[in-house]
Nucleic acid binder design. Structure first.
Length: 580
RNA sequence: GGUCCCAUAGCUCAACUGGAUAGAGCAGCUGACUUCUAAUCAGCAGGCUGGGGGUUCGAGUCCUCCUGGGAUCGCCA
């Protein structure tokens, strides 16, 4: 259930009735009519902009519409009061039984908050997609956490989600990997490795060199690249993917599909995708203009095969072939996205690092062209993560040499803290990650704040059980909730009622951070109510000798815990039952 | 120079996609532990939403031009 859509339906119904009565002209478009909680709770429980939105098309004063609408709505048993305010807002106050119903709904349906928004549409979320040349670093960590939470959010909102990783194993960087691994192999064979400039220096290749020695003995030693490059490349790439899967597992990230760039070569898929574009007149041989304003010194005009991405919103056309005739990185990526379109997805989402910002328009152009505009592609960029430790920037890793790894972070602070912290920021804003701060167990640290709220509820449940009160969800859902009427209690119930709405808003915008912020507010309302019990004994959850009232109060906080648990589930964070 | 992102309280960030008097936390000040866990809560104080124009009933949000920061810009992926 979603109370806000229920009330919106009521408003639309009332508008239709007014049309039928001739109060309003017929045929008004009601798309822009919204029902939202007012920013100031003092105004009421719900507000609708209907009168203001319709005033112009109806040719009426907003207040006149609002008053007619108010009279209609006030007849509904759920509405206690309907008042016109300001320029034409209509504020509704709902009866206590509505909020009691929300509590019951949260307990009765495990799917409370789950939404039909997605209608089972198939969405592909591609994230991480790091080059298989080493362990994941902090930038990947943010992308992994964001993409995974987004995927869970969409699944919760009713989409059929596929989590996918695109392995960039087709370019020159995997040759570099192979050469780097070969040096470690020589090292394992007792020779001195020569890690030349441009090779990967990290320690993580040492064990790869050793396993190469186990496999090949010294048969690859002192031979030219042509004898070992392909084999070592394949071997090392596979090892790196193992490493990456292990890194992801540390964060509890698990992909449904791994797609390989290399696998696209030699299958005709790239050619097919490009031919498809060519058939639309979007591929041509041409010479690009130098970048406007700033011509590189070594600029030379050269003829290349170009994709007319400008026909689909890009600023300049983009090369799909290098001047030597080989594919650019873009070409297999076009083929890969074409493949995703052909697999029948209704929508595609790519999660990229901020350094891929310049890539967004051309990719959207390609998908737009290849799907004839049918499949929307949303690209979310995750901005940089800046690490801090004791007030100092934190840069180096023992393991990787020149960057901090995912493993470094997760081993220090754990997956829950890593995930939650990285989700308490919009993806397009830079993130400061302070090792000391995220481990602090205080209000300053949202992870602990939210988990503590959940643990507090579970603690009360244990106490109630010990006191012989039935607090299983079925009993609570069947309990008499009419005693839940104190404004402090209703405030928490109203916050619980927001949950389905938050899910939809977050899912529509592909913005999982909204879940994190909502959970913080919900936790805050719970802590607040808890402390009200210090002064006002009647607000304490356990009412000695009054099992019925106790049940109703526990139903409320259990409903809260159910929502916290569902929300943390989306974020991939464990709800704690105890935090001693 | 082109493109994209960002700019909100002293600090770190929200703001329900155009709604009413812009909200939290931290830092500062004042209070609440005989308790269902004080890892918490209540209160005070803190703002020309970087600047100028525009769009409309209404702008932190949309358009435009500046300023400042970040990313990126054909044979890297």
């Amino acid at each position: 259930m979603n109370l806000f859509s229920d009330i919106r339906a009521l408003v639309i119904e009332a508008l239709a009735a007014l049309e039928a009565e001739g109060v309003l002209p017929r045929g008004l478009a009601t798309d822009a009519v919204s029902v939202e909680p007012p920013r100031d709770a003092g105004h009421g429980d719900m507000a609708t902009n209907a009168a203001m939105v319709l005033a112009k098309p109806a040719g009426m004063q907003p207040r006149a519409i609002a008053e007619a609408l108010a009279a209609k709505l006030a007849a509904d048993p759920r509405v206690v009061e309907a008042t016109v305010a300001g320029p034409g807002f209509l504020n509704l106050r709902l009866s206590n039984s509505v909020w009691q119903g929300v509590v019951r709904a949260a307990l009765s349906y495990p799917a409370f908050g789950r939404s039909l928004l997605g209608q089972g549409k198939r969405v592909n979320v591609e994230y991480v997609s790091a080059n298989p040349t080493g362990p994941l670093h902090v930038g990947h960590t943010r992308g992994a956490v964001f993409g995974d939470a987004l995927a869970s959010l969409l699944a919760y909102a009713g989409f059929d989600v596929t989590r996918e990783y695109y392995i960039n194993d087709g370019g020159a960087q995997v040759d570099v990997l192979a050469r780097s691994a070969y040096e470690r192999y020589r090292e394992a064979c007792g020779q001195a490795p020569e890690i030349a400039e441009g090779l990967y220096p990290g320690d993580y290749l040492v064990p790869v060199g050793e396993t190469l020695k186990d496999k090949y003995g010294d048969s690859l030693l002192d031979k030219g690249e042509q004898f070992w490059l392909a084999e070592v490349r394949e071997f090392a790439t596979a090892k790196m993917m193992e490493l990456i899967r292990e890194d992801l597992a540390l964060l509890n990230v698990h992909m449904d599909v791994f797609s390989s760039e290399k696998a696209l070569y030699g299958t005709g898929q790239i050619e097919a995708a490009i031919d498809r574009l060519r058939g639309m007149g979007l591929i041509y041989e041409g010479v690009l203009e130098p970048p406007k304003g700033k011509t590189p010194e070594d600029w030379e005009p050269r003829e290349q095969t170009l994709f007319r991405s400008t026909a689909h919103g890009d600023d300049v056309d983009r090369p799909v072939k290098k001047s030597d005739g080989s594919w650019t990185y873009f070409a297999p990526d076009i083929a890969y996205h074409f493949d995703k379109v052909n697999r029948g997805f209704d929508a595609l989402i790519d999660v990229f690092g901020a350094d891929h910002g310049g890539y967004v328009k051309r990719m959207k152009a390609a998908v737009s062209a290849l799907s004839s505009g049918r499949v929307p592609l949303d690209i979310k960029l995750t901005q940089l993560v800046k690490l801090w430790k004791n007030g100092e920037p934190f840069k180096m890793s023992k393991r990787a040499g020149n960057f901090v790894t995912l493993r470094d972070v997760v081993e220090q602070v754990g997956p829950d803290v890593t995930r939650f912290t990285m989700l308490t920021r919009k993806n397009d804003a830079p993130l400061d990650f302070d090792f000391a701060k995220v481990l602090e167990q205080s209000r300053d640290n949202p992870v602990f704040y939210v988990q503590y709220a959940h643990a507090r509820v579970q603690s009360v449940l244990r106490k109630a059980r010990d006191a012989g009160v039935a607090v299983d969800d079925a009993s609570l859902a069947a309990a008499d909730l009419t005693t839940l009427s104190h404004e402090a209690e209703l405030k928490l119930a109203k916050q619980v009622a927001e949950w389905p709405r938050v899910v939809e808003i977050a899912a529509k915008g592909n913005e999982p951070h909204r879940i994190a912020f909502y959970l913080y507010e919900l936790a805050s309302d719970l802590h607040s109510l808890w402390n009200r019990g210090n002064d006002d004994v009647s607000l304490r959850f356990l009412q000695e000798g009054d099992a019925a009232t106790t049940q109703s109060k526990i139903a409320l906080i259990r409903a809260t815990a159910v929502v916290i648990s569902a929300g943390l589930g989306i974020l991939g964070v464990t709800p704690m039952d105890e935090m001693r």
